[in-house]
């Protein structure tokens, strides 16, 4: 599980990395919106494979596709439930004993959702993997997002990695004091309970310390702020943003006309 949830920016030298965060965001949003609008799963599968050149250029092919294996469990449930119990079932595909049957419509529905999930995941991953949170926030501020909101956004983005590393530290401390955290699921669950208190306390203390550090560095000073990360919106960005939107519309329309 962790890898799938904790995916974050990977620094690489590539054209795709250098694109403006908004450009990449537009591409991801286009693909994800499309995945809901396309006529059937075939079009979604094409869209899914369409990411390969981008991921390849960003040198992140493996990182984009590897976490998909965690979807497997979801697929098992999806197919298990939908192919038996899809409400709009009409055509029996395989008749099973006790009145059970695998239904064609259910199966197709499951395929549909799976293809959509695949698209959402890979385009989402590619965005997160290639966009430094700092660049994203910097760009959003440039476009008028308030200063403090930018800070909230960036701390939220850092929250998960921070909490995981804190959890690990506390678990080490507890194991060194004789708490068994390895072994059965129940044992592990038990080990996690005494963790919640310190973790929560630690976060509060952290927040207080952070606030002081921010104040000490004139966070609330009322003046125009300069930025350390300078993000540009280049001609290429314009081109790619425009073509993402236009091609998406064309592709969506074509899928319904053909």
């Amino acid at each position: 599980m962790p890898e799938a949830v904790l995916i974050s920016y990977v620094k690489k030298k590539s054209f795709f990395h250098k694109l403006n965060p908004l450009t990449k965001l537009v591409l991801a949003v286009c693909a994800i919106t499309l995945s809901f609008l396309l006529k059937n799963f075939m079009y979604n599968l094409i869209l899914f494979f369409f990411i390969i050149p981008f991921a390849y250029e960003a040198k992140l092919l493996r990182q984009v596709f590897k976490p998909l294996r965690y979807l497997f469990i979801i697929f098992v449930f999806l197919f298990g439930i939908q192919s038996f119990f899809y409400p709009f079932r009409e055509t029996v595909l395989v008749q099973l004993p006790f009145g059970f049957a695998i239904w064609l419509e259910g199966l197709l529905y499951a395929v549909d959702i799976s293809a959509r999930l695949l698209v959402i995941m890979v385009y989402g991953y590619l965005f997160v993997l290639t966009t430094h949170p700092g660049d994203l926030v910097s760009e959003l501020k440039e476009r008028g997002m308030p200063h403090w909101l930018g800070y909230v956004l960036i701390t939220t983005l850092q929250l998960i990695p921070r909490v995981t590393s804190q959890t690990e530290v506390i678990i080490e401390a507890q194991r060194s004091r004789g708490l068994e955290t390895q072994g059965s699921v129940i044992k592990r669950l038990k080990a996690y309970t005494p963790l919640l208190g310190p973790l929560f306390m630690g976060s509060v203390q952290n927040a207080v310390e952070r606030a002081m550090a921010l104040e000490a560095r004139a966070f609330r000073a009322e003046c125009d702020k300069t930025r350390y990360r300078d993000v540009k919106f280049t001609k290429q960005d314009k081109l790619i943003t425009a073509s993402s939107i236009i091609l998406s519309i064309i592709y969506g329309v074509v899928s319904w006309l053909l």
Partner: peptide, 23 residues
């Protein structure tokens, strides 16, 4: 496991903040 070894070897962490967690 570390828990089993903790009967024999006790390790006091370099940074106390990494070790203290009770109230």
């Amino acid at each position: 496991t570390t828990a089993q070894l903790s009967k024999i070897v006790g390790y006091v962490f370099q940074d106390p903040d990494d070790q203290l967690f009770m109230s």
